[in-house]
Design a protein around this nucleic acid. Structure first.
Lengths: 251, 251
DNA sequence: AAGTGGTCTAGACCACCCA
DNA sequence: GGGTGGTCTAGACCACTTC
């Protein structure tokens, strides 16, 4: 596959091309947990790129938890537990797929509403701003695992229909394609809560069952708030995340 | 303060020195949400460093959620919601402090045990390996908010005493100072659960009250597992995290 | 077209780890 | 001491945004 192409043949920057090659090597098991990669200078010579480009590739992979470097020692493959754990936005469809489940959804309602005080504050917009509210039950292998209550800031006159969402599978994909919705970053707030009557009905659990509650505020590439989403998950649902050492630096 | 020192006077690399200056500028409100920083070339000239060093400083800050860059547009200050949200290991004492609360702890027990099958699997060690188990109630402003059940892989013959932990305030700090315990990365798994009789007693909540359950596996700088910690928090406790766009890249 | 960030190079020197 | 990653430079060119 891509490993035999030159960087110019793939449309990628050289460092990305290199990173993909190394990633493939790891995925194919030729390098495993805590094994050392070749030294940077060697990689540079072998792949005919500058050492700086090699370093860029390594940093790119390190950010993703695939490898780690130690000062005078070398660069190593991260253990598998870490390697798979990088969170991204709209992880539900993707995460579920990655974990070997089939993601699904059942749309509860689609409404055009005005932002309440609470939501306006969270999104830092005017109270009353028109929003599209989409409520869905999320499924894994046809079993309900969570409810999502999304409040979307869309361009004026946007209309979302049930069948559009149903056809596209991923709400985000649809919004991106149709409305230039372009999430760049999000902040999440997690806590535990108890199922109310509605939750219980949709999720098929008793009232007062424990739920994982996750609030998300999503920002566009220009860091404008574009979504507030309240998600509630049954207790069998796992939310995974990776955290790094506070490398130092006092603050 | 540090802004008037030359890079050589602070023991820091130049890019860190520059990053601190810019960070100060933001903290003092001279630059706020979504405002543009000076162009890279201008920063380079003004601070008499190469453009590459400027870029390193900016990438360093971007990773921490302080700023973001957009290709042909410029580099901007992240909105405050994002700016404060970077998770690090042993966030409890630090987070609590950052949020204006006073962190505390009440030690339930300290035991020397052998790793159970379950924990041995998680930590990827031999079943029966000696571990130190520390159970604590975590407090904010003297109110119990969570229980931590830590299983630590320590050098042979390590002894932890109640008074040591109590004196040091932070368990991690103690372990780092005394036993070369050096967490570099961790993986967390969150879900909802219900309080059992013990939880209820320690946390002063009813049995079956919803709890936020967080399992953490911590790895050393060499990516050896050094801790498994099971944490349970009452529903008023908030766990915050920041996630980035799946920048692209298919995988 | 002008201005901005993104990629890439070649080479130098420093800091850390280990035998 | 020899090998490794970490920092830094000066300059070139590309890609994207904005006017």
């Amino acid at each position: 596959m891509k490993k035999d192409l030159t960087p110019s043949e793939t449309q990628l920057p050289r460092y990305r091309w290199l990173a993909d090659i190394i990633r493939d090597t790891i995925d194919r098991g030729l390098l495993t947990d805590n094994q050392a990669l070749p030294p940077e200078r060697e990689l540079a010579e072998h792949y005919e790129v500058s050492r700086d480009t090699v370093r860029k590739a390594l940093r790119y992979m390190e950010e993703r938890g695939i490898i780690y470097s130690d000062h005078g020692r070398g660069t190593f493959v991260s253990p598998a537990i870490v390697r798979g754990t990088t969170r991204f936005i709209d992880s539900f469809s993707q995460d579920t797929g990655n974990r070997g489940g089939v993601p699904g959804q059942r749309i509860i309602s689609i409404e055009n509403i005005g932002a309440s005080m609470a939501i306006a504050t969270l999104l830092n917009i005017e109270s009353g701003t028109p929003l599209v509210r989409v409520r869905r039950v999320r499924l894994i292998d046809d079993i309900p695992v969570g409810v999502h209550d999304a409040h979307l800031v869309l361009p004026r006159g946007s209309r979302l229909t049930r069948s559009q969402i149903e056809r596209s599978g991923s709400l985000y994909k649809l919004l991106t394609a149709q409305y230039g919705f372009d999430p760049a970053e999000a902040v999440e707030n997690l806590c535990a809560g108890a199922a109310d009557a509605d939750d219980a009905q949709w999720l098929d659990v008793p009232v007062a069952a424990p739920l994982l509650i996750c609030e998300r505020i999503t920002l566009s590439d220009r860091r404008q708030p574009i979504e507030y989403c309240l998600m509630k998950y049954v207790s069998s649902y796992r939310y995974r995340t990776r955290i790094a050492r506070h490398s130092d630096g006092t603050r």
